[in-house]
Design a protein around this nucleic acid. Sequence first.
DNA 1: CAGATGACTCCCA
DNA 2: CTGGGAGCCATCT
Length: 128
Amino acid sequence: MDETPPLYARIYLLTGQIPTGKVTSYGDVAAIVGGGCDARTVGEALRAMGEHAPEVPWQRIVSQDGTISTRGLEQRRLLEDEGVTFDQRGRVLMIHHRWAGPDAAFAAAHRFGPPPAHDDPPEQLELF
DNA sequence: CAGATGACTCCCA
DNA sequence: CTGGGAGCCATCT
């Protein structure tokens, strides 16, 4: 067990920037943090977070589809308490709560990259 | 250095 | 929707 790895520290730092009521996915965090990490690395960082950064709002990190893969129904409760809404399948409505990324100045200060462009939902097809 | 691990993601049956 | 398998990568032993 070592001190907080540099990459993990960056992940915690970025996670701490997520405002209340917003959520993001493991993959997005990995993309913004960069440094060669991926969604799995983020998950591993958050798993060990309890030892390094107990104050980080880990509940705001969900899977790409908005599902909560962790076994904590507690995560959903925490998010609902922040105003995050879920659909009937128990998935976070990423459409309305997806975080756009850190502040430009903050990102520049820590060399964070831009969040990956995600396709907007087909919320409504142009009437033909 | 090699093997094992994991709060992920994607694809297919 | 559920389940299985592959690809991915940092960190720990």
